[in-house]
Nucleic acid binder design. Structure first.
Length: 920
RNA sequence: GCGCACGUGGCGUAAUGGUAGCCGCGCCAGACUUAGGAUCUGGUGUCUCACGACGUGGGGGUUCGAGUCCCUUCGUGCGCACCA
């Protein structure tokens, strides 16, 4: 009988559904394993063959763990809120929910065909009110919390209120937007609004003034990648930098813990390094520079306190609130002009444009260490969002300050012995200090590192600064002026933001008549009728960003239908956190930071038991497309095969890869593709038209999208699964190359053929050879799966089958082991074999076999014998021979005489079972 | 600029410091075929008729022995990027 993948796969998928084989339940006392894929955004284009790569890998792993006896949780769901559905809604007027649901149905259909072991009873959708009520719930908790720096955790804001009413800010150490100081009496005298403003400064979910890319025409904030050259990518409308009141999450408060706990995770070094980079810890000092003639100080952050004697000017970010207070009447016009110029640039443009620009404020500050008066400038090379938005400039030892000093002709004072600063700055943190002494601090002669430490001590003693660790990680902007997202459970009473009561959740996304901003520039929710609380207070018009719904979804899978809690204590204590998380590395500085933050916040509240959400993480590579080309001879309708195109002047034209097989063009289909090709003529090679190819992004416009449905239809899901794994290491990006898929399919057909030769009732024990082949395979595949090396395990199956074929094996026992081992990779064919072998139940629960080293032992070992490291001949020696015996056998071997050439070896190295090397 | 990966046949790749190239694709030859986008068998790093020599981006080092470890250099990819 022939291998009929269609019939087999359909039948067993039905069997799995009918028996709810993949349904997971909490079983206290039984060891659990949680395998998670990053859930997809269901786009209108459907899945292409790149999407399932990670899903196949995680599916193999979870099936493997299940066969090893673990209680496996392997869920799937949809990240259903997103911009494409909203854009489509704006264009067509169709409700984004409608298209999203249709896309989800399509995704589900495609996923089902591949035979994944997902527990669909736990599916979550971020746009489902039963799900997003918990996103809103978490937001309320964040609103009602502040971050206590002494406890290093989130605490109830009520505790802070109590503290304020008794002691004011005295003794408060909390993460905040600005440092505040007031007494209990002052607090108690504040109005409700004033108190609310103060608390907003401490809340973990807070409203704050933030610099954003604002597009007036679209009426929304845009992300940096949605803006190019000062205009919106969509529509080309002007975009400006604008300070707006936005909801934010105080992610920055968690920076130290997000950094430290990376060490507890089994993630790739590169991913951890990316996060470390993003969090950007730097040790330094904050110093106060008194402003001449004013009663306030400028605060700066520096990692090079040692260079304080070389500060010849200071620079403020254009957005710094000090600019206004420092600009003198004479300089006002120039400063205003500069600020106007800068505000028209996006942050991105400011980063790209490296030209030096800036303006003098007219004010001076006093260097607290050298006592010198120095001018204060404004320039956009100083970032408002990092440190204090102001710097002390040391042109001799910082290349940016150097460029600025050169451009505006400011003094440059070298501080390190031997540093030549006539052409460029000396940025290295090494060398001996010079020019660095005042009455009670002398750094001269010190190494840079000593000098940094000495200066830090000095400024702390003198009260002109303090040691400070700064982080680059910024708070997350949490508002979006969009429709298709979670509504904020926030209303405004007399201009003060209040969160709703948990009992009022979910706050349902209202219907609107259009998905565009209102005529007055309000977000789309401004169109909703009666968008008010029962008491008539207006509700927040922004919605939450994409990462809101994806930040805690792994928790919801543990207990997806619970309407009392995000996750019950019991379910959370059983499943705990994700043991293996598989997904793309592009989420390194987005989702994977937010999710860790969100989890830590819930951990602080005691809502979850684990401080980290994802123990082990594997990044699967991307699958690129492989486009095909035909070559038209210029000004003709004649196409020349690739190998002959050099003889003509040709134009390459992309052709749909469905018309091409193994780079050979189907001429008839090509003629039917486009009317202009109907009477095309061809110049062939060996009767074939060979196409060219290129590796590009997989996309519709390149005609190179491969739909997994087509592969499943033609070769079967098992072939697709094996082939995607066989393509190469899972973490590597690689082009999809349909040319190789026949190999995987051929293997399954051969395996099928091999099975046909087996009599399931035959009880004959395995021969020694069969035992060796199978136990070698068990060992290899077990190790490979643990190491996520699926390409090598697929190879191992091929080797084992070749060996069994060569042994003319028809042994049912060997086939049974093969079936158990290949079940995670090719579950349909394995299920078929399992039942034909007369086994009970599903192969999904077939116990994973163990190998016995005794079966791998040989009677004799073939040693490669080397002379001075170069292998000269092979010699078979009894396996139980000890080192000395092997050495004797080798030296006595007739082949050895030729290489020994009568000499006595200086040294003979015998590595048992591996090699013999003779040094002459 | 900083950080992190990675450079092996025509291609995808494999190799606990121990016979480099397993497995697959492609290609070549043969078998079976009226036919084959089918199947089976054998071959396939380079040079050489052969013996053999040379081969893991280049250069150096450690080692009895290096694709693997160290230094250096070139190249490719990714991440961050005016972060004081």
């Amino acid at each position: 009988m022939e291998y009929n993948h269609r019939e087999i796969e359909q039948r067993w998928q039905q069997y799995w559904r009918d028996h709810e084989i993949y349904k997971a339940t909490e079983q206290p006392g039984r060891k659990k394993f949680y395998v998670l894929d990053m859930f997809p955004y269901p786009s209108g284009a459907g899945l292409h063959v790149g999407h399932p790569l990670g899903y196949i890998a995680s599916d193999i792993y979870s099936r493997f763990k299940r066969q090893q006896g673990f209680n496996v949780l392997h869920p799937m769901g949809y990240d259903a809120y997103g911009l494409p559905a909203e854009q489509y809604a704006i264009q067509t007027g169709q409700h984004p929910e409608k298209t999203t649901i249709a896309n989800i149905a399509r995704y589900r259909e495609q996923l089902d065909k591949i035979g994944f072991s997902f527990d669909w009873s736990r599916e979550v959708r971020t746009c489902d009110p039963g799900y997003y009520r918990w996103t809103q719930w978490a937001f309320i908790q964040m609103f009602n919390s502040y971050f206590d720096l002494r406890e290093n955790k989130a605490m109830p804001i009520a505790a802070l209120v109590e503290h304020f009413s008794k002691e004011g800010t005295e003794g408060v150490e909390a993460a905040c937007s600005r440092n505040l100081n007031f007494t209990a009496a002052e607090w108690n005298a504040m109005t409700e609004k004033e108190q609310a403003d103060v608390l907003m400064n401490y809340r973990i979910a807070y409203q704050g003034e933030t610099m954003v890319n604002w597009c007036e025409a679209l009426g929304t904030v845009l992300a940096n990648d949605e803006v190019s050259e000062g205009v919106s990518v969509r529509g080309g409308h002007p975009v400006e930098q604008k300070v707006m009141n936005q909801w934010c999450l105080r992610v920055s408060a968690y920076a130290p813990r997000l950094l430290d706990d990376l060490n507890t995770l089994q993630w790739s070094d590169s991913l951890k390094e990316t996060q470390r980079n993003w969090i950007g810890r730097s040790e330094g000092a904050e110093m106060l520079f008194p402003v001449v003639g004013k009663d306030f100080d400028l605060e700066i952050f520096t990692t090079r306190a040692d260079t304080a004697f070389g500060v010849t000017f200071m620079v403020l970010a254009p957005e710094s609130k000090y600019v206004e207070r420092l600009v003198t009447p004479e300089q006002k016009e120039a400063v205003d002009a500069y600020l106007a110029e800068v505000s028209h640039k996006t942050e991105r443009e400011r980063q790209i444009d490296k030209r030096v620009s800036g303006v003098f404020t007219g004010s001076y500050a006093r260097n607290p260490i050298s006592g010198k008066e120095i001018p204060i400038w404004v320039s956009d090379y100083v970032l408002a969002g990092y440190g204090t938005g102001a710097i002390m400039a040391v042109p001799a030892h910082d290349s940016r300050d150097y460029a600025f000093a050169r451009h505006f002709d400011l003094p440059i004072v070298p501080l390190i012995e031997g540093a030549d600063v006539s052409e460029e700055s000396f940025d290295a943190k090494e060398g001996k200090m010079i020019n660095s002494a005042n009455d009670d601090l002398n750094l001269n002669g010190m190494e840079v590192k000593e000098a940094i430490a000495a200066t830090k001590r000095y400024i702390e003693e003198k009260g002109i600064g303090r040691v400070k660790v700064n982080y680059r990680l910024r708070d997350a902007i949490f508002s979006r002026q969009r429709y298709w997202g979670e509504p904020f459970p926030v209303y405004y009473k007399d201009g003060v933001a209040h969160v709703m009561d948990e009992s009022e959740l979910p706050l349902m996304l209202p219907e609107v008549d259009a998905y565009l901003p209102t005529s007055t520039g309000e977000p789309p929710l401004g169109r909703a009728k009666n968008w008010k609380t029962a008491e008539g207070y207006p509700i927040e018009l922004c919605t939450m960003p994409g990462f809101a719904g994806s930040s805690a979804y792994y928790l919801r899978y543990m207990d997806p239908h619970n309407d009392k809690a995000l996750v019950s204590r019991e379910a959370d204590e059983y499943w705990r956190n994700v043991d293996l998380y598989v997904g793309g590395a592009e989420h390194a500085t987005g989702h994977l930071i937010y999710s860790r933050f969100w989890n830590k916040f819930l951990y602080d509240l005691g809502e979850v038991v684990e401080p980290e959400p994802f123990k082990k993480l594997v990044n699967q590579g991307m699958i690129q497309g492989r486009s095909n080309f035909v070559y038209r001879i210029k000004d003709t309708n004649t196409f020349v095969s690739k190998g002959l195109k050099g003889d003509y002047d040709v134009t390459p034209i992309r052709v749909d890869i469905s018309m091409v097989s193994n780079d050979v063009l189907d001429l008839e289909r090509f003629k039917g593709w486009r009317p202009e090709f109907a009477d095309a003529e061809f110049i062939l090679e060996d009767g074939k038209y060979n196409c060219g190819y290129a590796v590009e992004k997989m996309s519709k416009s390149m005609f190179n999208v491969v739909n997994p449905d087509d592969i499943v239809d033609r070769y079967g899901a098992d072939t697709l699964r094996l082939y995607e794994m066989f393509l190469g290491p899972i973490e590597q990006s690689k082009p999809w190359d349909t040319n190789g898929i026949d190999g995987a399919n051929r293997f399954l057909k051969k395996l099928w053929g091999q099975f046909e030769k087996v009599d399931p009732a035959d009880q004959t024990p395995m021969t020694k050879e069969e035992l060796k082949t199978m136990h070698k395979l068990i060992k290899k595949v077990t190790g490979d799966i643990e190491n996520f090396s699926f390409n090598t395990s697929v190879s191992a199956f091929m080797v084992a089958l070749n060996e069994l074929t060569a042994q003319k094996s028809t042994n049912a026992g060997a086939m049974e082991i093969f079936t158990r081992l290949i079940a995670p990779f090719a579950p349909h064919i394995a299920e078929e074999f399992w039942h034909r072998l007369g086994k009970e139940g599903s192969v999904v629960d077939a116990e994973w076999p163990e190998w016995d080293e005794a079966n791998l032992k040989e009677d004799s070992v073939k040693y490669p014998v080397s002379f001075n490291g170069k292998t000269r001949f092979m010699l078979e020696v009894a396996a139980d021979a000890d080192k000395a015996a092997v050495e004797d056998a080798v030296l006595a071997a007739p082949e050895a005489a030729k290489w020994l050439d009568g000499k006595t070896p200086k040294k003979v190295i015998v590595v048992p079972g591996r090699i013999v090397n003779i040094v002459l």
